[in-house]
Structure formats: C-alpha cells, structure tokens
C-alpha cells in the first residue's frame, strides 16, 4: 500500500517534469527539469524494489550526465533558434508517429492482463542480483567495461581542438 502510494507520487512527478523538459524554451531550465525527472525515476525504481538500479540512477544520471549537460550548455552559448519552418509532409510524420504511440499507451493502460508468472529464480535480493550479474552476465559486463574505455578515448579524441596528424 505504502509502496503503491510512493510509486504513484514519483510517477506523477516524473511525467510532469519530463513534460517540462520537452516544452521549456531555455535549455538550462530543461536541464534542471531533466535532473528532477531522473531523481523521480530513481524513486520509482526504489518503490519497485530495484534498489541498486535506483542508486546507480542517482549516481550516474543525477551526478554525471546532468553535470555534463550543464557544462555543454555553458560552453555552447545559447543563441536563439529560429521558429519552425518545416514542410507539410515531415510535419504530418512528426505529428502522426507520437499520436499512434499515444493510442497504444491508452490501449495498454485500459486492457486487463494477468501478471506474468514468476520466473524460475526467486527473489529480488541484492545477493541474487550480484550472483547473476557476475556469473551469467559476466561476459557482457566485461564487454561493457571495454566499451567504457573506448568511449573515454573516443570522446577525448572527438572533442579535442587539434587534429591528430597536426604537427603542432
């Protein structure tokens, strides 16, 4: 009961603030609302008993990605963007695709479906999480670490000022 109330509270917060992310004109306001969205999604994770996921969400999104966005918006100075001048066909496309998805959301919300059966492995405990992550999913985990190393090097090389073969 309490978990349900917490879930609905954070769900409403997340939906409201993500709407503000998309609709604000000033990019810095959007970043602040993005931080708000990310923290409320972390609250949703806590109410769904995914504590580790919520903690990682707060650390990585709230602490890392939002700060990265703020730095980029400070570096890239904010000049005005001219209002929309799209042709009729692309405008129809960008209106119809979200509208179809929204109809699908209504459909999902108002059909009754049985809850999926419990899997063979029981429990959401931190121990079972860690055991499965480091046994069944060990190879993807190691590949993810290689991906992070590649991203570290790649982002530095892409964002640096001088080219690699520049003699200076």
């Amino acid at each position: 009961m309490i978990a349900g109330l917490i879930f609905y509270f954070f769900a409403a917060l997340a939906v409201l603030s993500s709407l503000f992310v998309v609709t604000r004109k000033n990019a810095m306001h959007s970043v602040m609302y993005l931080a708000f969205t990310v923290l409320s999604v972390a609250g949703v994770f806590f109410s769904l008993q995914a504590e580790y996921l919520g903690a990682i969400q707060i650390l990585v999104y709230g602490g890392g990605i939002v700060v990265l966005y703020i730095f980029v918006i400070i570096i890239v100075n904010l000049n005005e963007i001219k209002p929309e001048r799209r042709k009729l066909f692309p405008r129809m496309f960008i209106f119809s695709l979200p509208a179809l998805l929204f109809l699908q959301i209504i459909n999902v919300l108002f059909t009754n479906r049985p809850t999926p059966p419990a899997g063979p492995e029981a429990g959401l405990s931190f121990t079972s999480f860690a055991e499965m992550l480091f046994s069944t999913y060990l190879i993807p985990f190691e590949i993810a670490s290689i991906l992070l190393l590649a991203v570290l090097i790649g982002a530095i090389i892409v964002a640096r000022k001088k080219l690699l073969h520049d003699p200076d």
Binding site: Y52, L53, Q57, E121
Partner: peptide
Amino acid sequence: LSYHMRSPRGSIFAIFIIIMAVSEAAVGFG
C-alpha cells in the same frame, strides 16, 4: 517486469542500458 517476475534479470539489463546511455551522452557531446 523484474519486480513482477521476481527475477533480477530486468535490473541487470537496465544497468547495461544505463552504461550505454552514459557512453552515448559522452560521445554525443563530443
């Protein structure tokens, strides 16, 4: 889904998605 099926697999997959999101943000900003 992880909560409803009482299995940690969904959370593990979500962790990998977060790793991918961080990579995408870093390279995208570069």
